[in-house]
């Protein structure tokens, strides 16, 4: 009995130590972001701030607000559109499959693994041609298209679980392709939509390569602005850390409130990164 309770004790000790280790960067962000100018020196980086100083947040907020707005204007429509298209594709591929549809699906899926560097140069030329270069709608288009494979995959796997007999019964009653989608599939896929939307919102919000190559200055989403902020020598660390927290806040909040769905998305989309 003695040894048993001591192993339990050590197990918790180890878990708490690991959790603390995982939270070290969070400690650093929070502590630094609340420091005043005189405290943000390297040798004091582990110290707690003397008091709560919001100057860092104020400066970061003023600098990043336009980019935060850009990111919302980008991520929300891109998420909604990819989810809707993914649902339709998933519906067709799972319930109205045709000869060659599986091959088509496989060819689509390949698109989610490619390094985007391999499409970047023509993509930029193309966006310039259709005059969507350096615009939020342009980035929305790009994210919707390259998000199609993963969204299609997630909905397809979700819809396979809906019994076909049910749809067949509806079909005999005279419900058509769209009727079945609207009246049976959509109402049954609320949780599917939550999972896909969380996944897609997080990916689009956090994305960097398309953002940095397809937009400049005023149109830049938050991650590009954060990278510029941290690359700048004249911006103080408290501002950088406050900026990092502001940039991460939307996805962190999504995670905090919907972590169950977030994890389901991770696993369902587990053939993506």
């Amino acid at each position: 009995m003695q040894t048993r309770s001591s192993t339990v004790f050590f197990k918790y000790l180890l878990l708490i130590a690991l959790a603390a280790l995982f939270l070290v960067p969070v400690y650093v962000i929070i502590v630094t972001s609340f420091k005043g100018l005189d405290e943000v020196t390297l040798d004091k980086m582990w110290h707690l701030p003397k008091g709560l100083d919001f100057a860092g947040y104020k400066e970061a907020y003023d600098k990043l607000l336009p980019n935060l707005r850009n990111s919302f204007l980008l991520a929300i429509p891109a998420t909604a559109l990819s989810a809707l298209m993914g649902a339709m594709n998933g519906y067709v591929l799972s319930k109205w499959s045709f000869r060659g549809s599986n091959l088509l699906f496989a060819l689509m899926l390949f698109g989610m693994f490619i390094p985007y560097q391999s499409v970047l140069i023509p993509l930029i030329q193309f966006m310039q041609q259709i005059e969507l270069y350096n615009s939020i709608p342009g980035l929305v288009l790009v994210h919707v298209i390259y998000g199609l494979p993963i969204c299609t995959l997630m909905f397809r796997n979700f819809y396979v679980g809906i019994p076909t007999e049910m749809l067949e019964a509806a079909k005999i009653d005279g419900t058509g392709f769209f009727g079945i989608f609207r009246r049976i599939m959509l109402p049954l896929s609320i949780s599917g939509f939550v999972v896909v939307c969380i996944w897609q919102f997080t990916s689009v919000w956090n994305e960097f390569l398309f953002a940095v190559t397809l937009t400049t200055q005023k149109k830049q989403p938050i991650m590009v602005a954060l990278q510029n902020l941290s690359g700048s020598q004249i911006v103080h660390w408290n501002v950088q850390m406050a900026g990092a927290l502001l940039a991460a806040l939307p996805t962190l909040l999504v995670y905090a409130f919907l972590s169950r769905y977030f994890v389901r998305g991770l696993l369902a989309g587990s053939i993506k990164g």
Binding site: L18, P25, E207
Partner: peptide
């Protein structure tokens, strides 16, 4: 243990550099 997955690689990079 899972929450870092909600972060961007950019945020991770900025913080770990520090």
């Amino acid at each position: 243990f899972i929450f870092p997955m909600a972060l961007s690689f950019i945020v991770t990079g900025v913080v770990w550099q520090w």
